[in-house]
Design a protein around this nucleic acid. Structure first.
Length: 400
DNA sequence: GCTCGGTAGCGCCCCCTGCTGGA
DNA sequence: TCCAGCAGGGGGCGCTACCGAGC
């Protein structure tokens, strides 16, 4: 299938951003036999996705739910569901005879997806076949539709577990649901391709009754999954044999994002980034900060204390990062950010980003008084002088 | 747990240069 | 022709935020 591509109206899909696949209500729902991950990506985040060429998936009118089977016990997976252009060869894939078929309805707006699996286990990876109603997902040219499902290790999944992923357009939510059904056997036959070593995928083909079938190959990953309900630790990549043997390296997970660390102190520090708590207040300006380090740097900006002195000149800086950047600008001339379209290279990523706008013509900063748009914020600010000065000139002319 | 070093990102300001229109 | 105004492109720094790792 690699190579087969179907086309889906981009607006019909919302690509889930991997770090967003974290749940808010996962804990209580897990107790109900449902593992549910919900994310609320902001519009900015979705925008960012699109800028990377990834597809945006929006499900018109409601949620999209994807059922899939997890075969291995104690494994975690990242699933990427990707639509691809369909070719005539895909008809051959109809030979994949699913043994099971289920339809899922989740709410009024939900488009039905059909999970299918067969008993063949020839593939090293489990596969899932999903059918989508054709009126929802058109067999045209697709680029988009990428779903990342970060699945928790499935313990006690002897009966198997099913996961349902749903995208709700209205709120941008993604749900990960673990069902209680019996073990779903997995289909074999969809070609797979590794992407960044993370996932494999899948096959898209026309199904019956006007559906599109997507065969999803699941690659087991050694990725720790966020705990449900609270930050937790677990043994990284621990198999039973490994557990029995030796040195258990613990990995601590944030349950709000995909952050992991080998140190609990790092996790504890990280967890503060998910709160608005800023307990460290500058006594000079009353501005609050999350960490004492940031506060210290801030106070140095008041006092003029610049502890980081450049070895090659008389410049000094508040932070080591400023000094390092200064050294790249002035002394080492190291420019790690290189433009792929010309010879331009920059010390800073933001400069490269600004430079690329000169290639693309993008002008994201709009003047609110005229049609002028600038490629960076300061250009608009500078441009605004022309309005104020023009106004003042007129005023001077009108008032002799 | 604290601290340091490094990285990332946004913002601000400045300089240099080319174009354009009016004096 | 000269010059001021304006915009494009880019350099450099200020500051905040975050994280890995050493102590």
């Amino acid at each position: 299938m690699a190579g087969t591509e179907i086309s889906v109206p981009p607006e019909q899909f919302t690509k889930s951003k991997e770090p967003e696949l974290i749940t808010e209500k996962a804990l209580e729902e897990e107790e109900e036999g449902v593992c549910r991950a919900r994310a609320h990506p902001s519009s900015e985040e979705l925008e960012a996705e699109s800028t990377h060429g990834a597809l945006q998936a929006k499900i018109p009118g409601g949620e999209l739910e994807l059922l899939l089977a997890i075969r291995e016990e104690g494994e975690k997976h990242i699933l990427t569901l990707q639509t691809v252009h369909l070719t005539s060869e895909d008809a051959e894939l109809q030979d994949l005879a699913p043994q099971r078929q289920e339809e899922v309805q989740a709410g009024s707006g939900l488009q039905s997806w059909v999970w299918r699996g067969d008993g063949s286990q020839q593939s090293p990876h489990p596969c899932v076949t999903i059918s989508i109603q054709e009126e929802v997902y058109l067999l045209q040219e697709v680029e988009v539709m990428q779903l990342h499902v970060l699945e928790e290790k499935v313990t006690g999944a002897s009966e198997g577990s099913r996961c349902a992923v749903s995208l709700a357009e209205s709120c941008g939510s993604i749900k990960l649901m673990k069902g209680q059904e019996e073990e779903q056997l997995l289909a074999e036959g969809g070609s797979s391709e590794e992407t960044e070593g993370q996932f494999s995928l899948l096959e898209v083909r026309p199904g019956d009754e006007g559906r599109v079938e997507i065969v999803l190959t699941i690659s087991p990953l050694n990725i720790e999954k966020p705990a449900l309900g609270q930050a937790h630790a677990e043994e990284a990549n621990a198999t039973e044999s490994q557990k029995k043997t030796k040195e258990v390296k613990r990995t601590f997970h944030c349950d709000i994002c995909t952050f992991t660390s080998s140190r609990i102190s790092s996790l504890n520090r990280h967890m503060k980034t998910h709160t608005n708590e800023k307990p460290y207040t500058c006594h000079l300006c009353l501005k609050a900060f999350r960490t004492v380090t940031i506060l210290r740097n801030h106070i140095n900006t008041h006092t003029g204390t610049r502890p980081y002195k450049c070895d090659d000149c008389d410049m000094a800086f508040v932070t080591s990062g400023e000094r390092a950047r200064h050294r790249r600008y002035k002394h080492t001339h190291e420019k790690p950010f290189k433009c792929s379209m010309c010879a331009y290279a920059s010390v800073e990523a933001s400069k490269l980003k600004r430079h690329i706008r000169s290639h693309t013509g993008e002008r994201p900063f709009q003047c609110h008084l005229c049609s002028y748009a600038g490629k960076d914020a300061y250009k608009v600010k500078r441009h605004m002088r022309t309005h104020s000065e023009a106004t003042s000139k007129r005023a001077r002319q009108e008032i002799p």
